[in-house]
Amino acid sequence: MIINNLKLIREKKKISQSELAALLEVSRQTINGIEKNKYNPSLQLALKIAYYLNTPLEDIFQ
């Protein structure tokens, strides 16, 4: 099972779900679904998340 630290990292960087969704060009519901482990992001989306949060991919999804 993948450990998902997206919410923790996003909140630590003081970025809202809506702000991150806008940067990634996805819906806020997509971010919410990823954070609640209801949706697994594509590799492309996971890499974009890591880029915009300036955090290694391995720290977000373990």
Rank of each mutant, 00 (worst) to 15 (best):
L45D: 02
Q29Y: 10
I3D: 07
M1Y: 13
T30M: 13
E11F: 07
K38E: 14
Y52H: 11
S18F: 09
L24M: 06
L8D: 09
N54C: 10
K48M: 08
Y51M: 11
K48P: 00
A21V: 03
N32L: 09
K13W: 09
E19V: 08
L47Q: 11
K36G: 09
Q17T: 08
I31Y: 06
N5A: 06
A21T: 03
K36H: 12
P41I: 10
L57A: 05
Y39F: 14
A50M: 05
Q17H: 04
P41G: 03
N4E: 03
Y52A: 12
I31Q: 00
N5C: 11
I60K: 01
L20V: 00
I15H: 03
E25M: 14
L47V: 10
K14F: 08
K12I: 10
Y52V: 14
K12Q: 13
K48E: 05
K7S: 07
Q44D: 12
S42E: 05
I3V: 12
K38G: 06
N32C: 08
K13Q: 12
I2W: 12
T30Y: 15
L43S: 07
I60W: 03
I60Q: 02
E11I: 13
E11Y: 06
Q44H: 11
L43K: 12
Y51T: 07
M1I: 14
Y51V: 07
N4C: 08
A50P: 00
R10Y: 05
I31R: 00
L47R: 11
S16N: 05
E58Y: 10
T55R: 04
Q62N: 10
I34D: 01
K13G: 04
F61C: 04
Q29H: 13
N32M: 14
L6Y: 00
P56S: 08
R28K: 13
T55I: 07
R10V: 05
I31C: 02
V26N: 01
Q17F: 03
L6F: 02
L53S: 01
P56V: 05
E58Q: 12
L24R: 00
A50I: 04
E35R: 03
S18W: 12
K13L: 14
I15Y: 07
Q44K: 13
I34L: 08
S27L: 04
E58D: 09
G33S: 15
E58P: 08
N4V: 05
K36Q: 15
A50H: 02
K48T: 04
D59N: 10
K14D: 07
F61W: 09
K36L: 13
I31F: 03
L53H: 00
R10A: 03
A22K: 14
P41F: 07
Q29C: 12
K38W: 14
T30V: 15
L53C: 03
Y51W: 11
A21N: 02
F61Y: 04
L47E: 08
L23Q: 08
E35L: 04
P56G: 05
I9T: 06
N32G: 08
T30Q: 07
E35I: 03
A21E: 02
Y52I: 14
M1D: 08
D59K: 11
S42A: 06
Q29V: 09
A22I: 10
Q29G: 11
E35V: 02
R10M: 07
L23R: 09
Y52E: 04
S16R: 06
L6Q: 01
L45W: 03
Y39C: 12
E19S: 09
S42M: 04
L23S: 08
I31K: 01
N5D: 04
L8S: 14
Q62E: 10
D59M: 13
S16H: 04
F61P: 02
I9L: 09
A46H: 01
Q29A: 15
N40D: 08
M1R: 10
R28A: 13
Y51K: 09
I49G: 00
P56A: 08
N54G: 12
K7H: 06
T55K: 05
F61E: 01
E19P: 01
I3S: 11
Y39D: 05
P56K: 09
L47P: 00
I60S: 01
F61Q: 02
D59S: 09
A50G: 04
P56H: 06
S18P: 06
Y39L: 13
E25P: 04
L6I: 07
P41T: 05
P41V: 09
P41D: 03
N4L: 06
I15M: 15
Q44C: 14
E25I: 07
N32A: 15
P56D: 07
L24P: 00
P41W: 05
S27Y: 03
